[in-house]
Design a protein around this nucleic acid. Structure first.
Lengths: 241, 241
DNA sequence: TGACGTCTGTGCGATGCCGCACTTAGACTC
DNA sequence: GAGTCTAAGTGCGGCATCGCACAGACGTCA
């Protein structure tokens, strides 16, 4: 495997002790996760958990009339498929790749076995799950109280935190689906940010020009979640090792 | 202790094997949970988990400007303070009693010890936590896409499911705080439901007259969550025993 | 180079919710 | 029975977002 791809790029895997890492390593399968790929369909029985390394993935809920809303974003800080070890084996959410990249996956029964050792892996995964719960809750509040523009800022920052560069490949149409708003609403909000010099975009490419200003314009929701992630998963090494 | 109060009124406690139940029983402390009582303040270090029996409790997130939104409802089907065993020891949410009643609490370190046995109690609590995650996620979607009236129906049904009778003690002002909308918005929605003969209310007393009609008027969110709870925590006995 | 498809911008009326102010109506107290 | 308090109803202007329609603008590929 090339230097390009290394399981330790995922923060959770990187936090493991050598003993656990060595047990899991042979079971890790590198997978390409292309833009738009549906990792789990709503209600589907989950066969693997995924540890994203360079991709970003969205957890979406889709309503009966076809509209959708993003519940959470997961990148190299996290894991997909928590319901496998939480005990449900499936969830009503749909999981879609939002930014092309790679990740490692591992068969459900392997991670379950590891989890059932009730050691550092269990503790790490549960702490991550709690951070995820915070993100979901804050999303609910944000949907209720904040403007499209603020939510767009939040979304950009969430994505940026999980990327190496400062450019996103993403159309306004797709962002609108994530946020559960109209495409025109995103156009308007993005236009404002562009005019203010915070971002620059064209035809599916978004460049972040001024992150500090973006952080000042975003609603509190972004910061609340970030603080909670940092608190729960600080130096990862301190938790699991 | 009178027959009125019995820990087995809480479904999670009721699902325990005798071995686990007998270990926990001496540690259970009956507590009155009066309307409006703040069980946990946002960010506070949690000292107990609570198993509601006759009360109903709301998980709220409060924004900087003072507006709030309910993230989830917990009654005798659940437990409060999941972050204790998830590993965070605290959460950014505020937890407030929404309907007067009782519950049992247990010291944090006791439930942690039990959890760390990695047996049926752990499995039960994690499955419950997953159900809770579903409720939170669906709340986020509902906040985004559904009308105040639909959300009021959902809220009424969620409360009703956790009560013995068909009457709620709750002002429209408080409901508005839970839903994160204006009081007048609730007045309008409740007026419609009353005129349609689904409910009857006056000065803080709400009677549900026609539950089936309420279920037909509610958005899908209610049903999605209910189905998931039933799936994850079916006959509780099957899980833990 | 030209044609087509996709992405983005704009204008419009409709709507649902907001914030505020004020009224009406039960319930409780003295 | 009068006064007081709280819960609930109503009216009005404002605003954000919606749904729809259509017009440019950029890329791609023949």
């Amino acid at each position: 495997m090339s230097d390009l791809h290394n399981p330790r790029q995922n923060h959770l895997l990187d936090a493991l002790l050598n003993a656990e890492y060595d047990r899991l390593f042979p079971e890790l399968e590198l997978v390409h996760m292309p833009l738009g790929k549906v990792i789990y369909e709503s209600g589907e029985h989950l066969k693997h958990v995924y540890f994203p390394t360079t991709c970003i993935v969205s957890l979406l809920y889709v309503t009966e009339n076809g509209s959708s809303a993003e519940i959470a974003v997961v990148g190299n800080e996290g894991i997909l498929g928590v319901s496998i070890f939480m005990g449900g084996d499936t969830t009503p959410s749909r999981v879609v790749v939002q930014s092309d990249g790679y990740g490692y996956r591992i068969k459900a029964h392997i991670i379950k076995n590891e989890f059932n050792r009730a050691g550092p892996v269990l503790r790490l995964l549960l702490r991550y799950t709690q951070a995820l719960i915070t993100q979901m809750s804050q999303t609910a509040v944000c949907n209720r109280h904040h403007s499209v523009e603020q939510q767009l800022c939040r979304w950009l920052l969430l994505s940026l935190d999980r990327l190496s560069g400062n450019e996103l490949i993403m159309t306004q149409e797709l962002i609108a689906n994530m946020l559960g708003v109209r495409r025109e609403g995103v156009t308007e909000a993005a236009g404002k940010l562009q005019r203010a010099g915070l971002i620059d975009y064209s035809r599916g490419h978004i460049k972040i020009l001024d992150r500090p200003k973006l952080e000042r314009r975003v609603c509190e929701c972004y910061h609340v979640v970030k603080v909670e992630y940092d608190r729960l998963l600080p130096s990862f090494h301190a938790i699991a090792r």
